[in-house]
Design a protein around this nucleic acid. Sequence first.
DNA 1: TTTCATATTAGTAGCAGGTACTAATTTGTC
DNA 2: GACAAATTAGTACCTGCTACTAATATGAAA
Lengths: 178, 178
Amino acid sequence: MDRAALKKERQEFLLKKIKEEPFLKDEELAKACRVSVSTIRFDRAELGIAEYRERVKSVAENAGHAVNSGELLDLELFHNGLSVLSTDDSMTFDGTDIVKSQCIYAFAENLALSVIDAKAALVKVANVKYKAEVHSGERLVARSEVVRVREKEFIVHVFIKVNMTEVFRGKFSLLIPA
Amino acid sequence: MDRAALKKERQEFLLKKIKEEPFLKDEELAKACRVSVSTIRFDRAELGIAEYRERVKSVAENAGHAVNSGELLDLELFHNGLSVLSTDDSMTFDGTDIVKSQCIYAFAENLALSVIDAKAALVKVANVKYKAEVHSGERLVARSEVVRVREKEFIVHVFIKVNMTEVFRGKFSLLIPA
DNA sequence: TTTCATATTAGTAGCAGGTACTAATTTGTC
DNA sequence: GACAAATTAGTACCTGCTACTAATATGAAA
Protein backbone atom coordinates (compact mmCIF):
# COMPACT_ATOMS: atom_id res chain seq x y z
CA MET A 1 0.00 0.00 0.00
CA ASP A 2 1.02 3.52 -0.73
CA ARG A 3 1.41 5.13 2.67
CA ALA A 4 0.78 8.59 1.30
CA ALA A 5 -2.55 7.41 -0.09
CA LEU A 6 -3.53 5.86 3.22
CA LYS A 7 -2.73 9.13 4.91
CA LYS A 8 -4.87 11.09 2.48
CA GLU A 9 -7.74 8.68 2.91
CA ARG A 10 -7.50 8.90 6.68
CA GLN A 11 -7.46 12.67 6.61
CA GLU A 12 -10.55 12.75 4.44
CA PHE A 13 -12.24 10.37 6.84
CA LEU A 14 -11.17 12.58 9.72
CA LEU A 15 -12.69 15.68 8.14
CA LYS A 16 -15.96 13.88 7.53
CA LYS A 17 -16.01 12.34 10.99
CA ILE A 18 -15.48 15.66 12.73
CA LYS A 19 -18.08 17.33 10.57
CA GLU A 20 -20.57 14.67 11.63
CA GLU A 21 -19.53 14.48 15.28
CA PRO A 22 -17.66 17.59 16.31
CA PHE A 23 -17.45 16.51 19.95
CA LEU A 24 -14.88 13.77 19.58
CA LYS A 25 -11.63 14.12 21.51
CA ASP A 26 -8.24 13.23 20.04
CA GLU A 27 -8.21 9.95 21.89
CA GLU A 28 -11.60 8.97 20.45
CA LEU A 29 -10.60 10.09 16.98
CA ALA A 30 -7.44 8.01 17.28
CA LYS A 31 -9.51 4.91 18.00
CA ALA A 32 -11.89 5.67 15.15
CA CYS A 33 -8.98 6.04 12.72
CA ARG A 34 -6.92 3.20 14.24
CA VAL A 35 -3.85 5.36 14.63
CA SER A 36 -2.08 6.95 17.57
CA VAL A 37 -3.07 10.17 19.25
CA SER A 38 0.11 11.74 17.89
CA THR A 39 -0.99 11.07 14.35
CA ILE A 40 -4.36 12.63 14.98
CA ARG A 41 -2.73 15.75 16.37
CA PHE A 42 -0.47 15.78 13.36
CA ASP A 43 -3.43 15.44 10.99
CA ARG A 44 -5.45 18.11 12.75
CA ALA A 45 -2.52 20.49 12.45
CA GLU A 46 -2.13 19.71 8.78
CA LEU A 47 -5.84 20.08 8.07
CA GLY A 48 -6.29 23.15 10.24
CA ILE A 49 -8.86 21.47 12.49
CA ALA A 50 -9.12 23.07 15.89
CA GLU A 51 -8.96 21.17 19.16
CA TYR A 52 -12.00 19.64 20.84
CA ARG A 53 -12.68 22.54 23.22
CA GLU A 54 -12.53 25.09 20.43
CA ARG A 55 -14.94 23.05 18.34
CA VAL A 56 -17.42 22.77 21.18
CA LYS A 57 -17.15 26.49 21.76
CA SER A 58 -17.72 27.39 18.14
CA VAL A 59 -20.80 25.17 17.96
CA ALA A 60 -22.09 26.85 21.11
CA GLU A 61 -21.44 30.30 19.72
CA ASN A 62 -23.28 29.62 16.49
CA ALA A 63 -26.15 28.10 18.45
CA GLY A 64 -28.26 31.22 18.79
CA HIS A 65 -28.01 31.37 15.00
CA ALA A 66 -30.93 28.99 14.65
CA VAL A 67 -33.24 31.93 15.04
CA ASN A 68 -32.47 33.32 11.59
CA SER A 69 -33.47 36.77 12.65
CA GLY A 70 -30.83 38.56 10.61
CA GLU A 71 -29.70 42.12 11.17
CA LEU A 72 -32.34 44.80 11.15
CA LEU A 73 -31.09 47.70 9.03
CA ASP A 74 -34.13 49.88 8.88
CA LEU A 75 -37.55 49.86 10.45
CA GLU A 76 -40.59 52.10 10.21
CA LEU A 77 -43.05 50.51 12.55
CA PHE A 78 -46.30 49.50 10.90
CA HIS A 79 -44.92 50.53 7.52
CA ASN A 80 -41.80 48.74 6.39
CA GLY A 81 -38.58 47.08 7.44
CA LEU A 82 -35.25 46.05 5.99
CA SER A 83 -33.08 43.21 7.21
CA VAL A 84 -30.11 41.22 5.96
CA LEU A 85 -28.92 37.73 6.74
CA SER A 86 -25.75 35.99 5.60
CA THR A 87 -26.43 32.36 4.92
CA ASP A 88 -24.01 29.67 6.00
CA ASP A 89 -23.56 25.90 6.01
CA SER A 90 -25.69 25.45 9.12
CA MET A 91 -28.70 26.38 6.99
CA THR A 92 -28.14 23.96 4.12
CA PHE A 93 -29.32 20.46 3.38
CA ASP A 94 -26.57 18.08 4.42
CA GLY A 95 -24.04 17.55 1.73
CA THR A 96 -25.24 20.40 -0.45
CA ASP A 97 -24.87 24.15 -0.38
CA ILE A 98 -28.57 24.75 -0.95
CA VAL A 99 -30.18 26.74 1.84
CA LYS A 100 -33.33 25.15 3.26
CA SER A 101 -36.47 27.04 2.44
CA GLN A 102 -37.57 26.80 6.07
CA CYS A 103 -34.59 29.03 6.97
CA ILE A 104 -35.69 31.60 4.44
CA TYR A 105 -39.24 31.32 5.73
CA ALA A 106 -38.10 31.90 9.31
CA PHE A 107 -36.08 34.94 8.25
CA ALA A 108 -39.09 36.38 6.40
CA GLU A 109 -41.50 35.66 9.22
CA ASN A 110 -39.20 37.29 11.76
CA LEU A 111 -39.06 40.45 9.70
CA ALA A 112 -42.83 40.42 9.25
CA LEU A 113 -43.23 40.24 13.01
CA SER A 114 -40.68 43.00 13.63
CA VAL A 115 -42.45 45.44 11.41
CA ILE A 116 -45.66 45.21 13.41
CA ASP A 117 -43.72 45.43 16.67
CA ALA A 118 -44.92 42.03 17.79
CA LYS A 119 -42.65 39.98 19.97
CA ALA A 120 -45.14 37.14 19.82
CA ALA A 121 -47.80 37.70 17.21
CA LEU A 122 -49.71 34.82 15.80
CA VAL A 123 -49.37 34.02 12.17
CA LYS A 124 -52.76 33.11 10.76
CA VAL A 125 -51.94 32.53 7.14
CA ALA A 126 -48.79 32.59 5.08
CA ASN A 127 -48.52 32.31 1.33
CA VAL A 128 -44.98 32.09 0.13
CA LYS A 129 -43.16 31.59 -3.15
CA TYR A 130 -39.55 30.55 -3.48
CA LYS A 131 -38.35 31.79 -6.83
CA ALA A 132 -34.75 30.57 -6.92
CA GLU A 133 -32.25 28.43 -5.08
CA VAL A 134 -30.24 30.14 -2.38
CA HIS A 135 -26.70 28.95 -1.78
CA SER A 136 -24.59 28.96 1.34
CA GLY A 137 -22.68 32.19 1.68
CA GLU A 138 -25.20 34.31 -0.18
CA ARG A 139 -26.51 37.40 1.49
CA LEU A 140 -30.27 37.67 1.82
CA VAL A 141 -31.77 41.14 1.74
CA ALA A 142 -35.34 41.24 2.97
CA ARG A 143 -37.80 44.06 2.69
CA SER A 144 -41.19 44.01 4.33
CA GLU A 145 -44.24 46.17 3.81
CA VAL A 146 -47.44 46.41 5.77
CA VAL A 147 -50.15 46.47 3.14
CA ARG A 148 -53.29 46.40 5.20
CA VAL A 149 -54.33 46.88 8.82
CA ARG A 150 -57.72 45.77 10.07
CA GLU A 151 -58.42 45.75 13.79
CA LYS A 152 -55.71 43.56 15.20
CA GLU A 153 -54.95 41.89 11.91
CA PHE A 154 -52.08 42.87 9.67
CA ILE A 155 -51.23 41.86 6.15
CA VAL A 156 -47.49 42.06 5.58
CA HIS A 157 -45.57 41.39 2.38
CA VAL A 158 -41.96 40.27 2.51
CA PHE A 159 -39.57 40.22 -0.46
CA ILE A 160 -36.13 38.70 -0.33
CA LYS A 161 -33.38 39.29 -2.84
CA VAL A 162 -29.92 37.90 -3.43
CA ASN A 163 -27.71 40.05 -5.64
CA MET A 164 -30.62 42.21 -6.78
CA THR A 165 -32.58 39.13 -7.84
CA GLU A 166 -35.76 38.19 -6.06
CA VAL A 167 -35.60 34.70 -4.56
CA PHE A 168 -38.64 34.82 -2.30
CA ARG A 169 -41.89 36.62 -1.80
CA GLY A 170 -44.45 36.02 0.86
CA LYS A 171 -47.69 37.34 2.27
CA PHE A 172 -48.29 36.96 5.98
CA SER A 173 -51.54 37.54 7.81
CA LEU A 174 -50.64 38.34 11.41
CA LEU A 175 -52.76 38.67 14.50
CA ILE A 176 -51.66 40.57 17.57
CA PRO A 177 -52.86 38.58 20.55
CA ALA A 178 -55.66 40.10 22.60
CA MET B 1 -23.62 46.25 56.08
CA ASP B 2 -24.97 42.80 56.65
CA ARG B 3 -22.44 40.55 55.04
CA ALA B 4 -24.94 37.77 54.54
CA ALA B 5 -27.16 40.14 52.58
CA LEU B 6 -24.26 41.23 50.40
CA LYS B 7 -23.53 37.60 49.69
CA LYS B 8 -27.10 36.89 48.72
CA GLU B 9 -27.19 39.91 46.45
CA ARG B 10 -23.96 38.87 44.77
CA GLN B 11 -25.21 35.35 44.21
CA GLU B 12 -28.39 36.64 42.60
CA PHE B 13 -26.30 38.87 40.39
CA LEU B 14 -24.13 35.89 39.53
CA LEU B 15 -27.10 33.80 38.47
CA LYS B 16 -28.41 36.57 36.27
CA LYS B 17 -25.01 37.30 34.79
CA ILE B 18 -24.38 33.70 33.84
CA LYS B 19 -27.84 33.36 32.39
CA GLU B 20 -27.13 36.35 30.17
CA GLU B 21 -23.55 35.46 29.32
CA PRO B 22 -22.91 31.78 29.89
CA PHE B 23 -19.37 31.96 28.50
CA LEU B 24 -17.72 33.86 31.34
CA LYS B 25 -14.83 32.19 33.12
CA ASP B 26 -14.38 32.33 36.88
CA GLU B 27 -11.75 35.03 36.55
CA GLU B 28 -14.08 37.21 34.50
CA LEU B 29 -16.96 36.58 36.87
CA ALA B 30 -14.71 37.54 39.77
CA LYS B 31 -13.97 40.89 38.15
CA ALA B 32 -17.64 41.45 37.38
CA CYS B 33 -18.58 40.76 41.00
CA ARG B 34 -15.53 42.50 42.45
CA VAL B 35 -14.58 39.52 44.57
CA SER B 36 -11.84 36.92 44.39
CA VAL B 37 -11.87 33.85 42.19
CA SER B 38 -12.15 31.74 45.34
CA THR B 39 -15.40 33.40 46.24
CA ILE B 40 -16.81 32.80 42.77
CA ARG B 41 -15.93 29.12 42.99
CA PHE B 42 -17.54 29.01 46.40
CA ASP B 43 -20.70 30.68 45.08
CA ARG B 44 -20.91 28.42 42.05
CA ALA B 45 -20.66 25.39 44.30
CA GLU B 46 -23.36 26.76 46.56
CA LEU B 47 -25.66 27.63 43.67
CA GLY B 48 -24.99 24.45 41.72
CA ILE B 49 -23.65 26.34 38.69
CA ALA B 50 -21.40 24.22 36.52
CA GLU B 51 -17.98 25.29 35.38
CA TYR B 52 -17.30 27.28 32.24
CA ARG B 53 -16.46 24.30 30.01
CA GLU B 54 -19.59 22.42 31.04
CA ARG B 55 -21.73 25.44 30.31
CA VAL B 56 -20.24 25.85 26.86
CA LYS B 57 -20.76 22.19 26.18
CA SER B 58 -24.38 22.18 27.24
CA VAL B 59 -25.16 25.17 25.04
CA ALA B 60 -23.46 23.38 22.15
CA GLU B 61 -25.38 20.18 22.75
CA ASN B 62 -28.76 21.86 22.72
CA ALA B 63 -27.83 23.65 19.51
CA GLY B 64 -28.71 21.04 16.91
CA HIS B 65 -32.26 21.09 18.23
CA ALA B 66 -33.23 23.71 15.69
CA VAL B 67 -33.98 21.14 13.01
CA ASN B 68 -37.53 20.36 14.10
CA SER B 69 -37.68 17.22 12.08
CA GLY B 70 -39.66 15.21 14.62
CA GLU B 71 -39.94 11.45 14.70
CA LEU B 72 -41.19 9.69 11.62
CA LEU B 73 -43.80 7.11 12.65
CA ASP B 74 -45.09 5.96 9.32
CA LEU B 75 -44.22 6.59 5.73
CA GLU B 76 -45.59 5.41 2.42
CA LEU B 77 -43.38 7.05 -0.11
CA PHE B 78 -45.21 9.31 -2.55
CA HIS B 79 -48.45 8.72 -0.65
CA ASN B 80 -48.45 9.76 2.97
CA GLY B 81 -46.43 10.16 6.11
CA LEU B 82 -46.93 10.51 9.85
CA SER B 83 -44.58 12.27 12.25
CA VAL B 84 -44.69 13.57 15.81
CA LEU B 85 -42.75 16.32 17.53
CA SER B 86 -42.77 17.28 21.19
CA THR B 87 -42.50 21.02 21.54
CA ASP B 88 -40.29 22.60 24.18
CA ASP B 89 -39.14 25.97 25.46
CA SER B 90 -36.46 26.32 22.81
CA MET B 91 -39.26 26.77 20.28
CA THR B 92 -41.17 29.51 22.05
CA PHE B 93 -41.10 33.27 21.92
CA ASP B 94 -38.96 34.50 24.80
CA GLY B 95 -40.92 34.86 27.98
CA THR B 96 -43.99 33.03 26.71
CA ASP B 97 -44.93 29.42 26.18
CA ILE B 98 -46.26 30.02 22.70
CA VAL B 99 -44.48 28.00 20.05
CA LYS B 100 -43.24 30.06 17.10
CA SER B 101 -45.12 29.36 13.91
CA GLN B 102 -41.81 29.08 12.06
CA CYS B 103 -41.07 25.97 14.13
CA ILE B 104 -44.38 24.45 13.12
CA TYR B 105 -43.71 25.42 9.52
CA ALA B 106 -40.30 23.73 9.60
CA PHE B 107 -41.81 20.58 11.06
CA ALA B 108 -44.47 20.50 8.36
CA GLU B 109 -42.03 21.22 5.57
CA ASN B 110 -39.70 18.47 6.74
CA LEU B 111 -42.53 15.95 6.65
CA ALA B 112 -43.60 17.15 3.21
CA LEU B 113 -40.06 16.59 1.96
CA SER B 114 -39.81 13.15 3.59
CA VAL B 115 -42.92 11.87 1.89
CA ILE B 116 -41.53 12.54 -1.55
CA ASP B 117 -38.18 11.06 -0.57
CA ALA B 118 -36.35 14.31 -1.19
CA LYS B 119 -33.34 15.10 0.87
CA ALA B 120 -33.09 18.46 -0.78
CA ALA B 121 -36.18 19.29 -2.80
CA LEU B 122 -37.02 22.84 -3.62
CA VAL B 123 -40.16 24.31 -2.22
CA LYS B 124 -41.82 26.41 -4.88
CA VAL B 125 -44.93 27.55 -3.08
CA ALA B 126 -46.33 27.07 0.37
CA ASN B 127 -49.73 28.11 1.59
CA VAL B 128 -50.19 27.60 5.29
CA LYS B 129 -52.84 28.30 7.92
CA TYR B 130 -52.22 28.32 11.64
CA LYS B 131 -55.53 27.57 13.31
CA ALA B 132 -54.63 27.70 17.00
CA GLU B 133 -51.85 28.58 19.38
CA VAL B 134 -49.45 25.81 20.23
CA HIS B 135 -47.89 25.78 23.69
CA SER B 136 -44.59 24.46 24.92
CA GLY B 137 -44.84 20.83 25.92
CA GLU B 138 -47.65 20.00 23.53
CA ARG B 139 -47.17 17.10 21.15
CA LEU B 140 -47.60 17.84 17.48
CA VAL B 141 -48.93 15.05 15.30
CA ALA B 142 -48.41 15.69 11.61
CA ARG B 143 -49.92 13.82 8.70
CA SER B 144 -48.97 14.45 5.12
CA GLU B 145 -50.58 13.44 1.87
CA VAL B 146 -49.37 13.66 -1.69
CA VAL B 147 -52.34 14.98 -3.59
CA ARG B 148 -50.91 15.46 -7.04
CA VAL B 149 -47.84 14.48 -9.02
CA ARG B 150 -46.93 16.18 -12.25
CA GLU B 151 -43.54 15.57 -13.83
CA LYS B 152 -41.11 16.51 -11.12
CA GLU B 153 -43.60 18.60 -9.21
CA PHE B 154 -45.50 17.37 -6.19
CA ILE B 155 -48.38 18.89 -4.30
CA VAL B 156 -48.32 17.78 -0.68
CA HIS B 157 -50.80 18.59 2.07
CA VAL B 158 -49.74 18.58 5.70
CA PHE B 159 -52.12 18.63 8.67
CA ILE B 160 -50.95 19.04 12.24
CA LYS B 161 -53.02 18.28 15.30
CA VAL B 162 -52.57 18.73 19.03
CA ASN B 163 -54.88 16.62 21.17
CA MET B 164 -57.05 15.67 18.20
CA THR B 165 -57.53 19.32 17.31
CA GLU B 166 -56.15 20.70 14.10
CA VAL B 167 -53.72 23.56 14.68
CA PHE B 168 -52.17 23.80 11.24
CA ARG B 169 -52.76 22.92 7.64
CA GLY B 170 -50.55 23.62 4.71
CA LYS B 171 -50.15 22.97 1.02
CA PHE B 172 -46.64 22.65 -0.37
CA SER B 173 -45.66 22.62 -4.02
CA LEU B 174 -42.33 20.82 -4.21
CA LEU B 175 -39.90 20.40 -7.04
CA ILE B 176 -37.33 17.64 -7.20
CA PRO B 177 -34.16 19.14 -8.61
CA ALA B 178 -33.15 18.05 -12.09
C1' DT C 1 -13.65 44.42 74.54
C1' DT C 2 -13.19 40.01 73.67
C1' DT C 3 -15.07 36.08 71.36
C1' DC C 4 -16.88 33.60 67.76
C1' DA C 5 -19.21 32.14 63.61
C1' DT C 6 -19.45 33.29 59.03
C1' DA C 7 -17.47 35.14 54.86
C1' DT C 8 -13.70 35.70 52.14
C1' DT C 9 -9.26 34.93 50.30
C1' DA C 10 -4.94 32.34 49.41
C1' DG C 11 -2.55 28.42 48.27
C1' DT C 12 -1.69 23.54 47.25
C1' DA C 13 -1.95 19.23 44.45
C1' DG C 14 -4.11 17.06 40.69
C1' DC C 15 -6.93 16.47 36.31
C1' DA C 16 -8.45 16.84 31.29
C1' DG C 17 -7.34 17.97 26.93
C1' DG C 18 -4.82 19.98 24.82
C1' DT C 19 0.01 22.94 22.30
C1' DA C 20 4.64 22.88 20.75
C1' DC C 21 8.46 20.66 20.34
C1' DT C 22 12.07 16.83 19.83
C1' DA C 23 13.43 12.31 19.07
C1' DA C 24 12.91 7.61 17.90
C1' DT C 25 10.92 4.16 14.99
C1' DT C 26 8.41 2.13 10.82
C1' DT C 27 7.82 1.45 6.25
C1' DG C 28 7.58 1.71 1.23
C1' DT C 29 10.34 2.77 -2.50
C1' DC C 30 14.53 3.56 -5.28
C1' DG D 1 20.99 -1.09 1.71
C1' DA D 2 19.89 3.79 1.93
C1' DC D 3 16.66 7.35 2.18
C1' DA D 4 12.50 10.20 2.83
C1' DA D 5 8.06 10.27 4.41
C1' DA D 6 4.95 8.69 7.89
C1' DT D 7 4.05 7.38 12.35
C1' DT D 8 4.66 7.05 17.20
C1' DA D 9 6.57 8.31 21.77
C1' DG D 10 7.87 11.45 25.05
C1' DT D 11 8.74 15.87 27.27
C1' DA D 12 7.57 20.46 29.26
C1' DC D 13 4.04 23.69 29.49
C1' DC D 14 -0.80 25.78 29.25
C1' DT D 15 -5.80 26.77 30.73
C1' DG D 16 -9.61 26.33 33.59
C1' DC D 17 -10.97 24.05 36.38
C1' DT D 18 -11.89 20.43 41.22
C1' DA D 19 -11.05 19.35 45.88
C1' DC D 20 -9.03 20.43 49.65
C1' DT D 21 -6.69 23.09 53.55
C1' DA D 22 -5.39 27.06 55.86
C1' DA D 23 -5.22 31.78 56.86
C1' DT D 24 -7.52 36.16 57.38
C1' DA D 25 -11.30 39.63 57.80
C1' DT D 26 -15.52 41.21 59.72
C1' DG D 27 -19.97 41.95 61.96
C1' DA D 28 -22.56 40.71 65.86
C1' DA D 29 -23.24 38.64 70.43
C1' DA D 30 -21.47 37.96 75.10
